[in-house]
């Protein structure tokens, strides 16, 4: 019995971390149609920002929840101004440039910090269920995923900022004639996506191995989840993150962690074959 409770916690953990990892990518891809192949490196930068500030005496919560998103959001802003803004509408070129960017960021971080860095301990401690132990941090990740979801929904749906952002994505020319500068909106959206990604990196820093190349482990998962989810940022990402997160954990429980990933990937290919528009293209059309 206890094992199933633990398995359920693992599934929740898998789905909520996957959701957090994907959210920034889904914002940038869903709203701006830019495939950011440096997404994994944004996560890595968030984790590094957290670890370095925490090791220098900053409170771990501030390091995770404030320093990481601010830093990566700023990096995103700079990258958008220097690189991405020249590539709107050139989808393939933007993929190539962001791939180059990802190598560049890995190279810079390796040059500055070397191949390894001291991690941070997982806060919040653990609890027992029967013979098994789990960590409160798992539940905290779930809480963060729910909070992020709610925050993005409220901002996009009920604020002026969200209205302007959605209008610009739907019809940049029309928004422009009504007095909105699309260039500014794109800049803000990219920075916001980067900040959300940085937050994910910060939240994952205590529970993952931190190296300059750690982004590679996340980027594939994040992409198949966003592609499987389809165009709707929240409902698409949520549904595919839950599906793939659950498949991954159950598959890993029944076989090995590596084959858990293989199962997820195979499921993703079949899903894309059946639903080329993603889950949200079929079931939640027009949702956020």
């Amino acid at each position: 019995m206890d094992i199933y409770v633990i398995l359920l916690l693992d599934v929740i953990n898998g789905a909520s971390s996957l959701f957090l990892i994907c959210l920034g990518l889904a914002i940038i891809f869903g709203m701006m149609k830019i495939i950011n192949l440096a997404h994994g490196e944004f996560i890595m930068l968030g984790a590094y920002a957290t670890v370095i500030s925490a090791n220098n005496g900053v409170n771990i919560w501030i390091a995770m929840l404030v320093v990481a998103p601010l830093f990566v959001g700023l990096v995103g802003l700079v990258i958008e101004r220097c690189l991405i803004r020249f590539l709107y509408g050139r989808l393939v070129d933007s993929m190539l440039a962001t791939w180059g960017l990802s190598l560049l960021i890995i190279g810079i971080v390796t040059t500055i910090f070397g191949n390894t860095i001291q991690g941070v301990p997982t806060p919040l401690g653990g609890f027992s269920i029967g013979a098994y132990r789990s960590s409160y941090y798992t539940l905290f990740l779930l809480l963060m995923a729910v909070l992020m979801m709610a925050a993005i929904y409220v901002v996009m749906r009920y604020t002026r900022l969200g209205l302007i952002a959605r209008a610009t994505m739907q019809n940049p020319g029309m928004a422009n004639t009504l007095g909105v500068n699309p260039s500014t909106v794109y800049m803000g959206t990219f920075a916001a996506g980067a900040a959300v990604t940085g937050l994910a990196g910060g939240l994952l820093a205590p529970v993952s191995g931190i190296t300059p190349v750690m982004g590679g482990a996340y980027v594939a998962k994040a992409f198949i989840t966003v592609v499987g989810g389809g165009a709707a940022i929240l409902s698409g990402t949520l549904s595919s993150a839950s599906l793939f997160g659950a498949l991954n954990q159950v598959g890993a429980y029944l076989t090995t962690p590596v084959f858990g990933e293989v199962i997820v990937f195979t499921a993703a290919i079949i899903l894309i074959r059946l639903l080329p528009q993603g889950i949200s293209g079929r079931f939640f059309k027009g949702n956020l």
Partner: peptide
């Protein structure tokens, strides 16, 4: 670092 050089080359050419 080779990543640094390769990344710069790719961004430069694109």
């Amino acid at each position: 670092n080779s990543n640094l050089v390769l990344g710069s080359v790719l961004v430069f050419f694109v």
